[in-house]
Nucleic acid binder design. Structure first.
Lengths: 195, 195
DNA sequence: TTGAAGTGATGACTTAAATCAAGAAAATAT
DNA sequence: ATATTTTCTTGATTTAAGTCATCACTTCAA
């Protein structure tokens, strides 16, 4: 179990550029709870308030919505060292429109909004990390907005260059849904790309 | 000129839920510079590092890219009480891929990255505001990602419900570009929506 | 006050991607 | 090992939205 936290502490220190004191580590260890989810198990279901935020130690998950026609749309694919939550629901305590489901056996360290507020106040490295993640989120959001004007090929090429490991790790129909394409279209794009 | 700052101070206090001291206000007044841009004037040109962040006191602007075919794509439309910058370029000091242009006569209060760092350290209300804006950005980014799967009609309906004043304020071809649609398509959608 | 530029509407046509359908291949379970 | 989902491919067809072309209407500037 300790090793889970070591990876977590390393992550905080690396992102923030600051060291955690022993007291900091004790506080985090006391409040972050280790949790395992089996493949296909839900971390969050549509309509529920997302009470937890999870740090992924091992495994992967998808965040998706289901439209009126019953079609699923993946908004996010999450892997190790990423945070797992619906930020809107988590921050505002409103019912979520999203589902979050484990795609592989998932090991996370989870905590609540109130606890996070405490870490932000008491742990400088945690607060610095939070600010940097927000910055990165803002930048990523800016980039994603550009994708509106991209063709199917361009979206795929962008994924290949930004997240090449996703292609190995996730089935093609998940990738297609993440890119907002039908799986048939993605299959054809890959065929053409080989030439 | 003072009135510009009064609106700015009100904004910080409202968003942060905290009061600014006289010292805080003096520090902000000393470092934020009032600037006017005429209609069509550029706040940022593609290839330049975005050295400034501007708080819009009056007027509006668009953030856009130009693709290989010479077509412009609007990523953001900004109005009063919004921040004007390319966050990626501003935070990371990298050359920007965006252009930011005044759509109407524009009055802003602007400052540099280094100065912002100072405000974050010295002014609690400013730091609280920054965190809340980051939260809102993260939430907005999550929402925007959903738009990938939306049809032309759905994107338009979303705009109507979220930013109805944009429809009055900006020409239809700008709105179309912002939604990632051709102006002909938007014209047809509006015609159908009337029925 | 009259061009000129910018904006918006509409019709005809084209194209990118979705949908529908059927098999093949791979992964998982019994 | 074999059945049974699940995933992936390929072809035929449909559909949503883009492109091209033209005309009307408005602003704005000389």
């Amino acid at each position: 179990m300790m090793s889970n936290f070591e990876a977590f502490f390393d992550y905080i220190q690396k992102i923030s550029g600051q060291l955690l004191s022993e007291d900091d580590k004790d506080l985090l260890t006391a409040h972050f709870k280790a949790r395992k989810l089996r493949k296909r198990q839900y971390f969050l279901q549509e309509g529920d308030v997302c009470k937890y935020i999870g740090f992924i130690v091992k495994g992967s998950a998808r965040t998706f919505t289901v439209d009126e026609k019953g079609h699923e749309h993946i908004l996010k694919l999450s892997v190790e060292n990423w945070w797992l939550t619906d930020f809107e629901s988590f921050y505002l305590l409103t019912p979520s429109r999203f589902n979050i489901e484990a795609l592989e056996e998932l090991e996370i360290l989870q905590s609540t909004n109130a606890e996070i507020e405490e870490f932000l106040k008491k742990i400088p490295a945690f607060s610095a990390m939070s600010n940097i993640i927000s910055q990165n989120n803002t930048i990523a959001a800016q980039k994603r907005m550009q994708a509106i004007n991209y063709s199917a090929e361009e979206r795929y090429e962008e994924l290949v260059s930004n997240y090449p490991h996703f292609l190995q790790r996730f089935p093609q129909n998940m990738i297609a849904s993440y890119l907002g394409l039908s799986s048939e279209t993605l299959s054809r794009i890959k065929k053409n790309a080989l030439k």
